[in-house]
Amino acid sequence: MGTGTVSERDARMEALIPALRRFAWSLSRNADEADDLVQDSLANALGAWHQRHAEKDLRAWLFSILYNLHISGRRRWARRSRLLGEALRFQDAATPSHGQDAAVQCAQVLLQLDTLPEEQRAVLLLVGVEGLSYEEAARVLDIPAGTVMSRLARGRERLRRMAEGQPAPASRLRRVV
């Protein structure tokens, strides 16, 4: 059992729901599906509370439950290929990145994000948007911290090239790990 009373624990968990919903939505890109994912994650967490090491970060733990649920559910759907097609069409239509209004840019960055491999996308979201440390992200994804770094570098470079309308990189980057 963790420390603190049940109500304290519930309050700490509930405070993380907005971030969990954002992460779930950015992974699934569907409001209902995202909230289902959050609901299942919270239910799992309540059922497995005693498995959490008391000192470990609650946020990383909840994110990892959510990410694992997402991965296991997602294999059933070939959703990525559909989004990939959409994104490439979008890119054809909107190559010049100057003078775009903010809404279009937001839509574009999300579509481009969708073209990244799942594991790069998750790292970009956890570190860049959710503000997790590299160690926390490593714990969520169950990979070494060095791998977090290399996926982050590759994902960001790929998005950058996409935004500039350049072809996908032929791995100009030094490998960090």
Partner: peptide, 16 residues
């Protein structure tokens, strides 16, 4: 800039 664009694009969900 890319990171900020992502944050901006997803901020609405966090605020809901």
């Amino acid at each position: 800039a890319q990171r900020d664009a992502l944050r901006a694009a997803l901020a609405f969900k966090h605020a809901e």
